[in-house]
């Protein structure tokens, strides 16, 4: 009899566990779908340590066309506009340009609006508790890194509309490093007139994405050996170019694990005493490493310890 009970309880528990796993993912997939299909007008703030950035986020679906507008409301500002597969960035001090991609690279990781299945290898999806966020009932979904080299990401999803209400980069002590919180959202039947206006505007023509990928003119992948990266990161591009702001030449490497991006810069050493060290703002870490005859800098939403190890693993090729 005991044996049967054990089997029964196992049989009952197994689907309970798997449905838990499934529903965390399902919630994320539902959110991705909601973000792509609903007409909404939302305001949110991103809190990074002591600083705060307010944003306005509008999205509409007009027939088969998706319209999206994200704008940073403080300081010099930043305006990002998406019409289906074309994203245009308006920034201070540089001409607007477009990229052929179907998501805005804003404060929310793009992959969350896409196929999260590719994160399976490096992250676990865990269902958290329920709570009240921005005045609405919300369900917590935790994206937990399988190793200690990356941050965890927590999301609170609206139980009714499936839209994102809050998210945070969380370190392994459970401290929230960078939080995004919606302060207002209205979901409407009709698209906002401001977004429809976008259809009549002209935007710069983007380079085809293949052209960016195949641009091998200044390939720098053989200039340096990057000895270590956390599992799951792969090289997306490498080149030698000048930095926009200070005109300095750099060997540049861009890595991604599908969730966060890491940039590695190798540069001529700066004069004077150059201590190695880390800087952080919210979840973003900048590690500056003095390797004697060259400087290595690592930038990305990763823990300082990870950035340090990456920076110190850079060496001249044998």
């Amino acid at each position: 009899m005991k044996f049967i009970t054990l089997i029964l309880s196992l049989a009952l528990m197994a689907p309970a566990y798997s449905s838990d796993e499934k529903s965390a993912k399902e919630l994320l997939l539902n959110m991705a779908e909601a973000v792509h299909n609903r007409n909404f007008d939302a305001s949110f703030v991103v809190v990074k340590g002591k600083s705060m950035e307010p944003y306005r986020w509008l999205h509409a679906k007009q027939g088969e066309t998706e319209l999206e507008h994200l704008s940073l409301l403080n300081g010099a500002g930043l305006e990002i506009i998406r019409i289906d597969n074309q994203v245009t960035y308006f920034e201070p001090q540089s001409a607007p340009y477009s990229i052929a991609t179907d998501s805005i690279a804003g404060p929310i990781p793009e992959v969350l609006f896409k196929n999260i299945e590719r994160l399976n290898q490096e992250y676990d999806f865990v269902l958290g508790g329920k709570g009240r966020i921005a005045g609405r009932p919300a369900q917590l979904v935790r994206i937990e890194s399988k190793d200690e080299y990356k941050f965890n990401y927590w999301l609170w999803i609206d139980a009714e509309s499936s839209l994102i209400l809050k998210s945070a980069y969380v370190n392994h002590n459970g401290d929230m490093l960078e939080q995004l919180q919606l302060t207002h959202i209205s979901v409407t039947e009709e698209p906002a007139p401001l977004l429809l206006e976008m259809l009549n505007k002209e935007f710069p023509t983007p380079l085809p994405s293949d052209a960016i990928a195949k641009n091998t003119d200044n390939l720098a992948s053989n200039n340096w050996q990057i000895g270590w990266l956390p599992d799951g990161f792969s090289l997306l591009k490498s080149d030698r170019h000048k930095l926009d702001l200070n005109n300095e030449l750099t060997d540049y490497y861009l890595y991604s694990d599908g969730f966060v991006e890491v940039s590695v810069f190798v540069q001529r050493p700066l004069p004077g005493r150059r201590p190695s060290g880390a800087l952080s703002s919210g979840a973003t870490t900048i590690y500056v490493h003095n390797a004697g005859s060259f400087d290595v800098s690592v930038v990305g939403n990763i823990p300082a310890a990870t950035a340090k190890t990456i920076a110190e693993s850079v060496a001249r090729p044998l």
Binding site: S209, E261, I286, V299
Partner: peptide
């Protein structure tokens, strides 16, 4: 100046990351 330039460059490069991938 260098750190400011690096952070800006990282932000800009990260925008093409998804389409590159």
């Amino acid at each position: 100046q260098r750190i400011g330039a690096l952070v800006l460059e990282h932000q800009r490069q990260a925008r093409v990351a998804y389409s590159l991938e």
